[in-house]
Simulated scan of single mutants.
Amino acid sequence: MALASLVALLALAGYTALCGMQPFARCRKCSGTGVRQTRRKVTVCRRCHGRRYRLRIGRRLLNTGRDIHRAGTRHPHRHNADEEFTPWP
C-alpha cells in the first residue's frame, strides 16, 4: 500500500513538473495539425481553433488556483507614496 502511494505521489510530482516546463501539448483531436478533414472538406479544428496546441489540464488547474489566490489576497493600500504603510490604523 505504501509503495502504491509512493508511485502515485511520484507520478503526480512528475506531471506537475511537466506542466510547469511544457504547459502546452499537441491537440488530441487534430493530432497537432490544426485542421480536421471530413469526407470532402477541410475545416479548422474546433478544439484548438487551428492553433495546433492546447493547454494541459494540470496547467489550467495551476492557473486557476493562482488566480483564486491572487483575488483573495489583500494588498496594502497606500494613500500617499510618502507615507509609510502600517497594518494598523
Score class of each variant (00 low, 15 high):
Met1Leu: 05
Arg74Thr: 04
His77Met: 10
Arg47Asp: 09
Leu62Phe: 10
Ala11Trp: 04
Tyr53Lys: 14
Tyr15His: 13
Gly58Asp: 02
Leu62Asp: 05
Met21Gly: 12
Arg26Tyr: 12
His79Thr: 06
Leu55Trp: 07
Ile68Cys: 05
Asp67Val: 14
Leu18Arg: 05
Gly32Asn: 12
Cys30Gly: 04
Arg54Lys: 08
Tyr53Cys: 11
Leu12Arg: 08
Ala81Asp: 11
Gln37Ile: 13
Ala11Leu: 15
Arg78Met: 13
Arg56Ile: 01
Ala2Glu: 06
Arg51Val: 08
His69Asp: 03
His49Gly: 05
Thr64Trp: 14
Gly14Ser: 14
Thr33Gly: 06
Ala17Trp: 09
Leu55Gly: 02
Ser31Gln: 11
Asp67Asn: 11
Thr86Pro: 03
Ala17Asn: 13
Arg66Pro: 01
Ala4His: 08
Thr43Glu: 11
Leu61Gly: 07
Ala4Phe: 08
Met1Ser: 07
Thr86Lys: 15
Arg46Ile: 00
Pro76Trp: 09
Pro89Ile: 09
Gly65Cys: 11
Arg70Cys: 01
Val7Gly: 02
Arg78Gln: 07
Ala81Cys: 12
Ala81Gly: 14
Phe24Met: 15
Leu61Tyr: 14
Gly32Arg: 09
Trp88Glu: 11
His49Gln: 12
Leu62Cys: 09
Val35Arg: 15
Ala8Ile: 03
Ala8Lys: 14
Asp82Phe: 06
His75Gly: 00
Ser31Lys: 15
Ser5Val: 05
Leu10Tyr: 00
Cys19Met: 07
Ala25His: 15
Met1Asn: 02
Val7Lys: 06
Thr16Leu: 11
Gly72Thr: 09
Gln37Val: 12
Pro87Leu: 00
Met21Gln: 14
Trp88Ile: 05
Leu61Thr: 15
Val35Thr: 14
Glu83Met: 08
Leu12Glu: 12
Pro76Ala: 06
Leu61Lys: 15
Val42Cys: 14
Arg40Ser: 07
Cys27Thr: 10
Glu84Ser: 10
Thr38Asn: 09
Arg74Glu: 08
Asn63Met: 01
Ala8Gln: 13
Gly65Tyr: 11
Gly34Thr: 04
Cys48Thr: 04
Arg78Thr: 08
Cys27Gln: 02
Ala71Gly: 01
Thr43Arg: 04
His77Glu: 10
Arg52Cys: 15
Thr86His: 07
Cys19Pro: 01
Cys45Asp: 12
Arg70Tyr: 02
Leu9His: 05
Arg60Glu: 08
Asn80Gly: 02
Gln37Asp: 02
Arg40Val: 03
Met21Lys: 15
Arg56Ala: 08
Arg78Ala: 15
Ala11Glu: 14
Ala2His: 03
Glu84Thr: 10
Gly20Gln: 14
Cys19Thr: 02
His75Cys: 00
Ala4Lys: 12
Arg47Leu: 11
Met1Asp: 05
Arg40Phe: 02
Arg40Glu: 00
Leu61Ala: 15
Val7Cys: 06
Glu83Ala: 04
Cys48Met: 07
Ala8Glu: 14
Gly72Tyr: 04
Arg60Ile: 02
Gly20Ala: 10
Pro89Ser: 06
His75Trp: 05
Arg59Cys: 03
